[in-house]
């Protein structure tokens, strides 16, 4: 049984490393599309499209690996993850639409940037994970 547990832990660590690599590649290919379009290939549309397609494929790989990681979690860990993601999705939807309406109605003097929403999503997820982990453990 101990061997099975160790094997399971090792498999999880391996998938976690794979997820880190997918995430790193996703960020790098995203940066390549944005900066390459401006500086490397002077806005040639088909090159941008090729690298954007690559970025999307890497993104799908990242999500798929995360889904695989969830299958290796035990029931409490999975519950914590799902509750955190549910809260994050709900808050992001509410805050995102609110933020967009603030932009449309000129309640804010600047344009609503997606970066703010991504930061908000990340912060919500981290806080939810901490709160839920403390709640159950």
């Amino acid at each position: 049984m101990k061997t099975t547990q160790n094997e399971s832990r090792m498999r999880r660590m391996r998938v976690l490393r794979q997820l880190s690599l997918w995430t790193l590649f996703w960020v790098l290919t995203k940066a390549l599309v944005v900066f390459g379009h401006k500086s490397l290939w002077s806005g040639t549309p088909w090159i941008t499209a090729v690298f954007l397609a690559l970025n999307l494929l890497v993104g799908i790989g990242m999500v798929w690996t995360y889904k695989h990681l969830m299958t290796l979690m035990d029931e409490l860990e999975r519950k914590i993850q799902l509750e955190s993601m549910g809260i994050t999705l709900g808050l992001t939807l509410v805050a995102g639409i609110g933020y967009s309406v603030m932009d449309i109605t000129n309640l804010i003097p600047w344009d609503a940037e997606i970066g703010i929403l991504i930061f908000f999503t990340g912060a919500c997820y981290i806080i939810s994970m901490i709160v839920n982990t403390r709640r159950y453990c």
């Binding site: 049984m1 547990q5 399971s8 035990d74 029931e75 409490l76 860990e77 159950y136 453990c137």
Partner: peptide, 8 residues
């Protein structure tokens, strides 16, 4: 023995 984490 059960196949879950100690925290669980």
């Amino acid at each position: 023995a059960v196949g879950v984490s100690r925290q669980t």
